[in-house]
Design a protein around this nucleic acid. Sequence first.
DNA 1: CGGATTATTGACGCTTTTCAAATGCAGTGG
DNA 2: CCACTGCATTTGAAAAGCGTCAATAATCCG
Lengths: 241, 241
Amino acid sequence: MIEALVNKLENYLTLSDADKQQLKNAVVRVEDIKKDQDVICVNERPEFVHLIVDGWACRYKLIENGDRAIVAYLIPGDLCDIHIAMLDHMDHSVCSLTPLRIAYLERQKVEEIFFSNNTLARAFFWSTLIEESIMREWFANVTSRPADKRLAHMFCEIMMRYRAAGLTERHDCINFPLTQIELADAAGLSVVHTNRVLQRLRKEGMITFASKRLEIKNWDRLKAFGDFDPRYMHLREEVMQ
Amino acid sequence: MIEALVNKLENYLTLSDADKQQLKNAVVRVEDIKKDQDVICVNERPEFVHLIVDGWACRYKLIENGDRAIVAYLIPGDLCDIHIAMLDHMDHSVCSLTPLRIAYLERQKVEEIFFSNNTLARAFFWSTLIEESIMREWFANVTSRPADKRLAHMFCEIMMRYRAAGLTERHDCINFPLTQIELADAAGLSVVHTNRVLQRLRKEGMITFASKRLEIKNWDRLKAFGDFDPRYMHLREEVMQ
DNA sequence: CGGATTATTGACGCTTTTCAAATGCAGTGG
DNA sequence: CCACTGCATTTGAAAAGCGTCAATAATCCG
C-alpha cells in the first residue's frame, strides 16, 4: 500500500522497518475514487493527507480566463497534500486523471511523525524539496524550450519518476493514461498544437503514443532532444542509470 | 541582520526570543559581494546556508540553447539554499542582481535546529512550501497569461513579498533594481517584447518604471489586470490587506 | 569624458493560437 | 449487433503574439 512511497523516499535514505510501520500506522483507510473527481479543492484543509496508491492525478489551478493550468502530475507514491500539515488552506486543487486508489493518512499523525521521527521528517522535507525542484524545471522547460522539446522533456521526466517509485524497470515503455488535452494543459500549449507536435515526434521515430501507452523508441535520442538531465530529481544512480 | 527573515516567518507563527537567538547563533559571518556574482553554483554543496540580508538575487538555470531561465527572485529575508541541508547538490545556481549583503549560516547548525527546535523546523518547512507555491503560481502565470498580464502579476507578487518581509509599508512604490533583461529572463519573454509590453503598461497608466524604481499607479487595477490573488502566498491578513 | 551596458524602435518571420469542421473511437441502450 | 452519443483526435486555414535581427538612443559607471 505504501510501497511506492517507500521506494521513492529510499532514493534518499533507508527506512527502517519501524519507520515503515509508523507510516503504515498513519493510514486510517484506503478508498477508490472515480476519474475526473477532485481529491482536494483549493482553499480546503481536510483532516487527511492523501497518498496515491494507484492511478494518476494532477495538481491544477483555474485561471480567470477559464484555462486549467496543470502544474504537476501525481503518480503512485506521491502525497497530494502534505501542505496542509503546515498551511491552513490549499492553494490549488488535485483532480484524478484516472480511477484512483487513495490512502488517507491522518493529518495529526503526519504532524506527529514530523516532530518525533527524524528520519521520516528528513524524508518528507526531502520529498518537498524534490517537488520544488521539479517545479523549477517545469518552469524553465516552458519558458525556454519550444513545444517539441518541451514534450520530449516531460516524457523523460515521467519515465524517471516511474522508475524512482519502482513502478517499472524499463525506460522505454509505460502506461500513460493522459489525453492530449491533459498534456496540453500541463505543457502550456493548445490541444491543436500539442497534437501536431506529437505527430512530429512520432514521425521522427522518437515515440509512439496511442491507447494510453507511451513507447520511447530511442531513449538516448529523446533525452538529448529534450535536453533532459535527470540530476534535478536527485535520485539514486541506478535509477538515473 | 535576520529581521527580514524573522518578519517573513512571523507571517506564519510567532518566534520566541530564544528562537530568534538560535537563528542568530547559526550566523557565522556576514559578507558583502558584488553584483553579477554567483552566490552558489549548480552541483555544489557548500558548508553554509546563505541568507540575503540586503539586495536582490535570483535562482537561475542555464539551458542548452544558451538561455538563462530565472526561476525565482530572492530578496532580503530569503534563504538561498536550505536545500543543501538535505540534498547533496544544488540543482540550480544563485546569482546576485545587485550588490549583496549575505549572512552565512553554518549548515550543521541549521540541521541541528531543524531536528531540535519544533517551531523553527515548522517555520523552515513552511517557508519551503511557500516557495513551492510561488513556483506553481509562476508556472501557471507563464503558461496561461499573455505577456502584459504576466508582468503585472509579477509586479504584484514582488510588492507583496516586500511587505511580508517588512521592507515596505506601502503597496504603491518600491525599489526595483531589475533590468528589462532580467525581467525578460524570468517572464520567459524576449527583451524586445518585454520592453514593448512595459511601454503599454505605462501608457495605460498602471505603472511607472524607471531608474530602478517601480511605481504602481493603481494597485487595485493592476491586481485585477494581472489576475492576482495573494492567497497563494499564505501571508498574514494585514500584509495582504 | 568615454566605453559599455541598457532601453527603444522598426521590419519581418515563425511558432503557436484560434476557429471550425471532420474523423475516429468507446460506451450505452435498444 | 447496430445506432447513437459523447469525447478525443486530427485537419485546414487564417490571424495573433512573440521572437529575431539590426540599428539607434539613452543611461550608467569608473
